[in-house]
């Protein structure tokens, strides 16, 4: 699938081609998640299913440690103003 046949012209096309695939989303507040992408809009509002969210809780101090919390959600709306990046599934 090259760019000309799939019609990639702008960044949002990369997200469009990830519809119904598992994507990685990085969010503000040291959060990230993966989920299957079902909808998005120009604000990067997203609707994902089968979501696993990871929250990094940084304990600052002499020896800074990071606690990681995970949780799962069936169907989730994510408000676009918290989205830093959306990455398509890795094709290895």
């Amino acid at each position: 699938m090259d760019g000309s046949s799939s019609g990639i012209q702008e960044p949002f096309d990369l997200i469009r081609l990830s519809l119904s695939e598992r994507v990685f989303v990085k969010l503000r507040g040291d959060r990230e998640m993966t989920g299957i992408l079902h909808a998005y809009d120009g604000h990067m509002n997203l609707i994902l299913s089968d979501v696993e969210e990871t929250i990094m809780i940084v304990n600052e101090g002499e020896q800074a440690t990071v606690n990681v919390a995970k949780r799962k959600m069936d169907m989730l709306f994510v408000r676009g103003d918290g989205v830093i990046l959306v990455s398509p599934p890795s094709r290895t």
């Binding site: 519809l19 119904s20 079902h38 909808a39 998005y40 299913s49 169907m75 989730l76 709306f77 994510v78």
Partner: peptide, 18 residues
Amino acid sequence: YVQLPAEHVDTQLLEDAT
């Protein structure tokens, strides 16, 4: 976030509309 009731979301319809 808003957690939605998955059984009331038609994902195929959503993808087509998107």
